[in-house]
Design a binder for these strands. Structure first.
Lengths: 152, 152
DNA sequence: GGAATTAGGACTATTCTAGTCCTGTATGGT
DNA sequence: ACCATACAGGACTAGAATAGTCCTAATTCC
């Protein structure tokens, strides 16, 4: 499926939650109870995000995590990259060069690269600040959309 | 992973191959030998694409498949939808409404919907006709506009 | 009639995923 | 100092999804 894993999806929910109070430290238990996901799972997600340098951890009692950058400076592409540990890419050759045996003889690789870039652009164009707000403001897709888009 | 399945990926390769000679009938063996994928697998892919009405099958000796529409009239979004049997969507709620338990309490669903639309737009903006050509167009990431030919 | 070729599944081995849990380390409060 | 709180980093497991094969029709050409 052309789909994120559930963990990655939760990652975006976690980050969006944190973006609503960016200057506070949040611990795993608090986040878990707010987004309705088991604490052990949330904990795992927070660790991954911290390893990706999107969150700054604070250990010990009264510890927790806070955003490493302002919400406006973190995009969906950043979050997904951090969760998956590799750059976003719909094709295997985009995120893990060398893994696909067909790579050298593939006739569509160049064109796929273009599509990957366009998709990444769509994700990089949305910040946590925007995600944190109710869904009223349209994602700016006008620059992304090719002219023929009337047909969608 | 934010990634297509391998079969879906092959599906795009198959369709692109067919788009290079859109007016001919191609059988599974021929396609397989050209794209270097086992015939049984290619056969499976062709069936899926035919069920999605992207290919028109012709049974019996001298049979095979041909594109149901002109290459310029088939987009990557069409191909991926056909291969996966459901509309493209990065989140579960986008392609299978009701499957996610959090759906009702999810605070980011509306914003994700917009991102999904943007991604779909990127895929719907590239036709098989374009895929069939060598990738000469450099990607303009700063502008995020998948290049297309004039009109169509 | 016989050879080609697709239709439609059943089946399987492998890989991936989600989720839990355990042990270690750092920190704050008393 | 002690101890409770929290994160760090993995190991582990059950279950699901994936890729690929193979078999038995149904169709069509010659």
């Amino acid at each position: 499926m052309l789909r994120m894993s559930k963990l990655t999806d939760y990652g975006t929910v976690v980050m969006t939650y944190l973006a609503r109070e960016p200057d506070r430290v949040h611990n795993a238990a608090e986040v878990a109870s707010n987004i309705h996901v088991p604490q052990a799972t949330v904990s795992k997600i927070l660790k991954v995000l911290a390893r990706g340098n999107l969150l700054t951890p604070q250990r010990g009692a009264k510890g927790g995590y806070s955003l490493s950058r302002q919400p406006a400076e973190i995009t969906m592409a950043d979050v997904i990259d951090a969760m998956e540990g590799k750059p976003v890419g719909l094709t295997e050759c985009a995120s893990s060069p060398g893994a696909c045996v067909q790579e050298s003889s593939c006739s569509v690789r160049g064109n796929w690269q273009r599509i990957n870039d366009a998709v990444r652009g769509a994700l990089a164009g949305v910040t946590l600040e925007e995600m944190a707000q109710p869904a009223v403001q349209p994602v700016d897709t006008s620059r992304l959309r090719p002219s023929r888009q009337a047909a969608a």
